[in-house]
């Protein structure tokens, strides 16, 4: 029971991070129908930006207040990562829009290789670890000397994720940009005819996706305290799994899918085998796509004869 509760807490934390990345996949897929393969690496880049921003603040600027530092790190990561993703869309995907379907996918794979190797070349191949940003925990419950704890950093992740999801939901459901996005998802040509700036809307989608990935990246760095250039691929695939599980194109689906993947992975590691935890995630992906291709919240894709 104690183990279960503890794993539940850990799983929800991990799932929040996956969910934030998954939204990026789902939004981009929804609007231009492409699997943005480089999104996992955008997430990794954001963790590096957060790392550098954190070092600049603590080592150079001498800011000692962790909450302020964390906020600035978050803002810096969001800004720079959004810029990166904006440029990527502009340079690598926009020229290919409306052409051959495989071209953007290959371009995205190339971009993913480019990003991870760029970070490897500029920042070195070694793991980068930082001293814990946030320490301390709340003991929720203790039984037979096994404490069930909720650390402050987990609390921060939950809180930040929740706050961002609410503002993100507001953005999509209530603002003009959100409406333009939904219109482009349905029919880009028609949206353009009705005066929606499709290019700008798609650019903004990439910016928002990157900003959410940057939040995930910052949280990831804070939670694990270590990041390396190769950390984009596996979280990226898992977040994509989350998006598919939730039903690709569905925003609440991405969040629920992220939580489910986080929980599946955590419980699998705890109760079965930590070596095969990635197999668990990949199997979920395969099984979902084979038996429930529209995911939990997605619309079924019926081919018209």
């Amino acid at each position: 029971m104690e183990v279960f509760l503890q794993q539940l807490i850990n799983g929800v934390t991990l799932g929040s991070i996956y969910g934030l990345i998954a939204i990026g996949y789902t939004m981009v897929f929804g609007i231009i129908g492409m699997v943005n393969f480089a999104h996992g690496d955008v997430f990794m880049v954001s963790a590096f930006v957060a790392l550098i921003a954190f070092l600049v603040l603590t080592a150079w600027a001498g800011i000692s207040s962790i909450p302020i530092a964390l906020l600035i790190v978050l803002a810096a990561a969001m800004f720079f990562t959004s810029l990166v993703n904006w440029v990527i869309e502009r340079v690598a995907y926009r020229p290919l829009r409306g052409s051959f379907r495989l071209a953007p996918l290959i371009s995205a794979i190339g971009m993913s290789i480019l990003l991870s190797n760029f970070v490897q070349v500029t920042q070195g191949p070694r793991n980068k670890s930082i001293p814990p940003m946030v320490q301390g925990e709340i003991v929720l419950y203790r039984h037979n000397d096994y404490p069930v704890t909720l650390s402050y950093k987990q609390l921060i992740i939950w809180f930040v994720t929740a706050a961002l999801l609410v503002s993100f939901w507001y953005l999509v459901a209530r603002t003009k940009l959100g409406r333009a996005q939904r219109a482009c998802e349905q029919d880009q040509k028609m949206a353009a005819l009705l005066g929606v700036d499709v290019d700008r809307t798609i650019s903004m989608t990439f910016v928002i996706a990157a900003a959410l990935a940057a939040v995930a990246g910052t949280m990831y760095l804070m939670y694990y305290g270590v990041v390396s250039f190769s950390d984009g691929f596996v979280p990226g695939v898992k977040a994509f799994t989350a998006a598919v599980l939730g039903g690709i194109g569905s925003l609440p689906g991405a969040v629920v899918g992220g939580l489910l993947i986080g929980l599946i992975e955590t419980f699998w590691s705890a109760y079965f085998s930590i070596d095969y935890k990635d197999v668990a995630a990949f199997s979920v992906l395969a099984i979902t796509l084979i038996f429930l291709p529209q995911g939990l919240f997605g619309r079924p894709d019926v081919e018209k004869v």
Partner: peptide, 14 residues
């Protein structure tokens, strides 16, 4: 090597 490999993929596709 791989940096240019990725770059080449993007450029050839574009």
């Amino acid at each position: 090597r791989m940096l240019f490999f990725g770059l080449a993929m993007v450029v050839i596709m574009v």
